[in-house]
């Protein structure tokens, strides 16, 4: 592992909970409140780790160990994410497939842990999670394919390394479409408004939150941290699409990625402030729409 790899990895591990802080701050600003501190997620995680464990009556070892697996899968997935000019610690041809499936592993474990409680609410959340995730999967893959065709490369590091944001068409249009589609994916996968409301208090409408309804103490701490890493992964992907390519010097590009990640969090905050949740039955439409965006980009790349 090269020194830069270590730096990017550790900054991801260290700063990912900050994104929730930023999102909440933006939402507070829109609502005219002061809002919770930027570091609130860290406080929450520390608080949770000091608490006792309470397990549901019917839970087994699956419930207890799943959070560890979720976190492991996501941390390993972080190793595949490049940081602008700095290549990912592990980079190979077709690495985005492994990335998608590592996220799949974390989802599998989340769902399994939810089902282990035997609670009907958690079953409901799990059911929704797998439905929407299955529809989101093609969006990610087609997007990666679009990038691969566009740049002629097949690993994330090299794909992001060879994007040239110089012309409006086809690169500009394609990237814009892709950013829009992956933004929808980010909102879905991380259970944000308009797909899911992370702050809702009605079990019947929740997706992700309801799956961890009975998770508490250190386990909830791990799950919270894991979801911070997950949103970091998606933000980093979107940021890598645009921000490093606005600058010339590698050093500036590196900073650009960080700015981009924060920017994505700000955008998520704004979206959460100005939009409401859409009806559950309309979410598949949104996801098919995201795939349609990518497909349009793909076809226009071919035709143009």
């Amino acid at each position: 592992m090269k020194p830069f790899d270590a730096i990017t990895l550790f900054s991801a591990l260290l700063f990912s909970p900050l994104l929730f802080g930023i999102i909440n701050r933006i939402k507070a600003m829109f609502a005219g409140r002061n809002g919770s501190p930027l570091l609130q997620t860290y406080f929450d995680i520390f608080k949770l780790f000091r608490k006792n464990m309470i397990y549901g009556n019917s839970t087994t070892l699956v419930f207890q160990l799943a959070p560890a697996g979720i976190l492991a899968a996501l941390i390993v997935a972080l190793l595949l994410i490049p940081w602008g000019p700095i290549e990912a610690p592990i980079s190979f041809s077709g690495d985005f497939i492994l990335l998608a499936y590592l996220l799949g592993l974390s989802r599998f474990l989340t769902v399994i842990a939810a089902l282990d409680t035997g609670s009907s609410f958690e079953g409901m959340g799990a059911s929704r999670e797998v439905t929407f995730a299955a529809l989101g999967e093609p969006t990610f893959m087609l997007g990666a394919l679009l990038l691969a065709i566009h740049t002629g490369e097949s690993s994330l590091s090299r794909i992001f390394g060879s994007i040239q944001l110089t012309e409006l068409h086809p690169t500009g249009t394609t990237i814009t479409l892709l950013v829009a589609a992956w933004m929808i994916l980010l909102l879905t996968e991380n259970s944000r408004i308009p797909v899911d409301d992370p702050n809702t208090h009605l079990e019947l409408t929740m997706i992700h939150e309801v799956m961890v309804l009975d998770t508490g103490g250190p386990l909830l701490g791990i799950v919270t941290y894991a979801s911070a890493i997950k949103i970091w992964i998606f933000s980093a992907l979107i940021s890598n699409l645009v921000f490093p390519h606005l600058f010339e010097k590698p050093a500036m590009q590196t900073v650009g990625v960080a700015v981009g990640i924060i920017f994505v969090a700000v955008v998520v905050g704004i979206i959460e402030s100005i939009m409401g949740r859409i009806r559950l039955r309309n979410i598949p439409k949104l996801l098919v729409g995201a795939t349609a965006l990518v497909a349009t980009g793909l076809l226009m790349t071919l035709a143009g």
């Binding site: 499936y101 989802r107 769902v111 797998v130 087609l142 065709i149 497909a295 793909l298």
Partner: peptide
């Protein structure tokens, strides 16, 4: 490529379900 990737991704997601 588009057919392979879309199908495998969708099928993968549904298989998880």
């Amino acid at each position: 490529a588009a057919v392979l990737l879309t199908t495998l991704a969708l099928v993968g997601g549904l298989a998880v379900a």
